[in-house]
């Protein structure tokens, strides 16, 4: 059983389709979306329709903070993010909004836990960026593997048998064996707005039979997406960061 894990698509059609194309030849049995389908990017409608089709065909999906902000006067988003969400709301259909509002915060699948930000207080949208921020997730969940997004930077943490949490380097493109002697927390990189200095779209593949996780990066036409961001009159900073990957 091989799962493709996609998160933080952020209405980036070019990145989303590049990732789907990359998955096509990699024997994926099921897709998991970790939320933030919309926000920041210029193609919310197309991305949502594609995701809704995939969910109808068996994909799992949880809700992210940008998805929740649709139709809410939410003060927690930064100014640029809020601006894009307001722009997005006017462009979504009723079924698309219903899809977003119907998504769960957390999905538990056997010994796996999927959520957008963190296993502890999943609706507080905590950024897991270091070992201290990862530790509470291990405390509240018994899952062997917790998979989150939200940070837009691929990361990997483990919790050993004495409860010590350690961060690990994340080699791209090589399967990492998730040793049974530890529990793991993977932060999957963003499909539609990478922020780790590489503009390549990120996603991950979890092979449940070999218990291996592979972080992948895929090239996509970020110049086109940036052009669309500008054409839609969205903040320039959002176009630039796609090209720079920051």
């Amino acid at each position: 059983m091989r799962l493709a894990i996609l998160t933080d698509i952020h209405a980036n059609r070019e990145a989303f389709s590049a990732v789907l194309a990359d998955m096509a030849d990699r024997q994926i049995d099921r897709i998991v979306f970790l939320g933030d389908f919309v926000g920041y990017g210029p193609d919310p409608g197309w991305c949502l329709d594609k995701a809704m089709d995939l969910v109808a065909a068996g994909a799992m999906a949880v809700r992210g903070n940008h998805d929740r902000a649709v139709g809410l006067a939410d003060g927690t988003l930064n100014a640029n993010a809020r601006k894009v969400i307001d722009w997005t709301v006017d462009r979504l259909t009723v079924p698309q909004k219903m899809f977003l509002s119907g998504l769960p915060l957390v999905i538990e699948d056997g010994d796996l836990l999927f959520t957008h930000a963190s296993a502890n207080s999943p609706d507080d949208w905590i950024y897991v960026t270091n070992e201290q921020k990862a530790r509470p997730s291990f405390l509240v969940s018994k899952a062997r593997l917790i998979v989150v997004g939200h940070v837009h930077r691929p990361q990997l943490y483990s919790c050993d048998r004495s409860g010590r949490v350690a961060g690990h380097q994340v080699p791209i493109g090589h399967p990492l064996p998730l040793l049974g002697s530890r529990r793991w927390l993977a932060v999957v990189g963003s499909v539609g707005q990478p922020r780790d200095g590489s503009s390549l779209a990120g996603y991950a593949i979890l092979d449940k039979s070999t218990n291996e996780l592979t972080f992948r990066r895929v090239g996509y036409d970020s110049a086109t997406t940036a052009r669309k961001v500008r054409a839609a009159g969205l903040p320039e900073a959002l176009a630039m960061r796609l090209i720079r990957g920051e």
Binding site: E14, S17, A18, A21, S198, L200, G219, D221
Partner: peptide, 18 residues
Amino acid sequence: YGNNLHVVRLVALKGWAE
């Protein structure tokens, strides 16, 4: 997905060379 194959390859080639 409606992308020009030439552009797709160019982008992938740049991705390889990153």
